[in-house]
Write a protein that binds this DNA or RNA. Structure first.
Lengths: 122, 122
DNA sequence: GTTTATTACTTACTTTTGGTAAGTCAAAGA
DNA sequence: TCTTTGACTTACCAAAAGTAAGTAATAAAC
């Protein structure tokens, strides 16, 4: 089987780095957030819902999340195919922490933008 | 002034994407975590402490964090130079959330590794 | 008095990661 | 027979990150 997943092997022994590589990549948290808002979503629905992700990256992000046991993939043998994605319990336990980050962000984004503007002015 | 910072302009209007781009990049959370463990750290100390980050990426990560008002940079006019970094209050308010992620990771890393092995076996 | 060490970076170059657009597969409907 | 549909691959290109060497300014060592 070819390996379409992200590489993490270098950091096997560092728990912090391990986690941050997993959920701190470009798309994983966003996919988890969106999946957390519905019972199940099909590939195309996820794609539309996120909007800015490419099909390719959605594929590899979902595969990685599935491999980590954070997403469950159910395939219905139809043509055209129907594949549904949903969060696992493990992911449900992670979701509140991500929501906390989002809340923090919403609270602080204004100030951060201001800080960034000031910084840019020199 | 040349722009050595990360680009975020495309996602100005999406708070979620906005945050995740900011702290969900490859190094920011790790730098915040390490800085959170000391009052202040010099560039070289940070570099040694993180170990796997390149000087270049440490530079741009620190600059971005500084621009966002998450890190304070103090330069002492000596030769060789002495530059100290420390968290701002805003970053201190974010730190617990990152620690929560780390705790979750430490709790779940074993299961995740197992899941990943099973997945790889097919 | 020329070399070396020190620290916080830059710069040029290479590798890795992510994005874009087109293609594939298999059946059903026009 | 040709098109449509959905979930992907694939080939190709752009952007981000890693590597290694260089820079600057001074003091200490030889």
């Amino acid at each position: 089987m070819e390996n379409n997943l992200r590489k993490f092997s270098e950091v096997d022994n560092c728990p912090v780095r391990n986690v941050l590589d997993r959920i701190g990549d470009k798309w994983s948290m966003l996919v988890l957030l969106v999946l957390g808002e519905s019972e199940t979503l099909r590939f195309g629905e996820l794609h539309k819902s996120i909007g800015t992700i490419s099909q390719k990256m959605l594929t590899v992000t979902l595969k990685t999340l599935e491999a980590d046991g954070l997403v469950k993939r159910t395939i219905y043998p139809q043509i055209p195919p129907r594949v549904e994605y949903e969060l696992t319990e493990r992911a449900e336990s992670l979701l509140p922490l991500i929501h906390n980050l989002v809340d923090w962000a919403e609270k602080n984004m204004g100030d951060i933008k201001q800080a960034r503007m000031n910084y840019a002015m020199g």
